[in-house]
Each structure stands twice: as C-alpha cells, then as structure tokens.
C-alpha cells in the first residue's frame, strides 16, 4: 500500500458516500445516471469474485464490501425506492449501456493476462469501469443544472483513478516486474474520459460560477 493508492481508495470511498448522502438525505437522484450506477455494480461484482476465497487484508475486504454494498444499494434506491425513483430522469438517461458491455467482454476474452474465468471477469471489469462513466457524462450534458453534490461525485470518481495512475507509476519504480499494460491503458482511458469534465469543473470552481457543460 502506498500513499497514492490510499488517496485513490479514500477518494473513491468519498465519491460513493457523497452519492449515498445525496440520495439518502434529500431523497433525490436528480442528475444521476442509473445506467452508470448499474455498470458500476457489474464492475464490482465481476472484479470482486474472489472476495471470500482470496483474503488479502481486512482493509481490502471491508472496502470491497463497502463498494459492493453501496453500488447495489444505490441501484436499488433508484429503481425501487418510492420517493427517490420519482426524481430519476429516465427520459434523459438513455445511453445504451448494455451495448458497452459486449465489446468489453469480447476485448477481455481476447486481451487478458491469463485465460481463466476469474481473470477474464477481472479484465472485463477493468474495461467496463473505463467506460462506465459515459452515461453519466452524457446525462450531465443534457441536464443543464448540475447540482453541487452530483458535480462533486463525478469529480471524486474521476480523481480516484488519477491517483491510481500515480500508484502504478510508484509501484513500477519500487517493485520488480511490476508491468501491467492492460490495467494501465484502461486506467488512462478512464481518466482521460473525465478530462473535459475536469476542465469545466475547474473553470467553474476558479470563476466561482455554477458548473455548466457545453451541450
């Protein structure tokens, strides 16, 4: 564990807590893409298959349980909760996210580090996570008013993978044979997808104006 990875995990944890806070306290999911939340639930489900068979540390297990629990409960809130679901903007959240899954699965079957079920599922979760934010970014561009919590949620979600890139650079220089092109490239693609959001988020913060994304 290094400071970059800890910062990344904490940022990721905060992004999930900000979203749960928004949904649980103000009972609203306005501006949140259910498609992205569903993709993230699939990402965690396929990545943490070994949660009970491959014990790494208490920290690792607890964080996996938090990410699994939060992502599925957010999907449950947005689908089932009688108040929250009313604020879900299904007419605007129209990204065909299931179309994202097939290319990721095919790519995972072709490009992976080891052709085993678990490794292919893990690689699939990496590719899927890289594109999981797309429905959310599309929704942000459609809904004009981006409230602060939603903006913070997307910002933290993007920042966590940027910290992970620093973590991989650190591990590359401090550990022998630490070379993982698959993870590095998908992590880089994921972070680059946030680039324009980061730009507008920073502009809105610097000029102290409301966050607006160009249509």
């Amino acid at each position: 564990m290094n400071i970059f990875r800890l910062a990344g995990d904490m940022t990721h944890l905060f992004s999930v807590l900000v979203l749960l806070l928004k949904i649980h306290t103000i009972k609203s999911c306005a501006g949140i893409s259910l498609k992205t939340q569903e993709l993230y639930a699939i990402v965690f489900a396929t990545r943490y298959l070994d949660i009970f068979t491959n014990y790494i540390s208490l920290y690792n297990t607890i964080m996996k349980l938090i990410f699994l629990g939060s992502s599925f409960s957010i999907v449950w809130y947005m689908r089932r909760h009688k108040i929250v679901r009313r604020s879900y903007d299904k007419d605007q959240d129209t990204f065909r996210h299931y179309f994202l899954m097939l290319p990721c699965l095919i790519l995972a079957l072709i490009i992976n580090e080891k052709f085993t079920f678990r490794e292919v599922m893990w690689t699939f979760s990496l590719y899927l996570e890289a594109v999981a934010i797309l429905p959310q970014l599309v929704l942000l561009q459609r809904t004009r008013n981006i409230d602060n919590l939603t903006g913070q949620y997307v910002f933290l979600l993007g920042a966590y993978r940027a910290f992970y890139i620093l973590n991989w650079i650190y591990r590359y220089f401090t550990e022998e044979h630490f070379v993982h092109w698959i993870t590095w490239i998908s992590g880089l693609v994921q972070t680059l997808l946030y680039a324009d959001f980061f730009y507008y988020y920073f502009q809105s913060w610097k000029n102290n104006v409301k966050l607006e994304l160009p249509a």
């Binding site: 491959n54 790494i56 690792n60 973590n167 044979h177 630490f178 070379v179």
Partner: peptide, 10 residues
C-alpha cells in the same frame, strides 16, 4: 506470478 500483485488493489 506477475499478475497476482495487482489483485491486492481494489
């Protein structure tokens, strides 16, 4: 094995 050392990450 090389690939295991990524599995300690989330």
């Amino acid at each position: 094995e090389a690939y295991t050392d990524l599995k300690d990450e989330l």
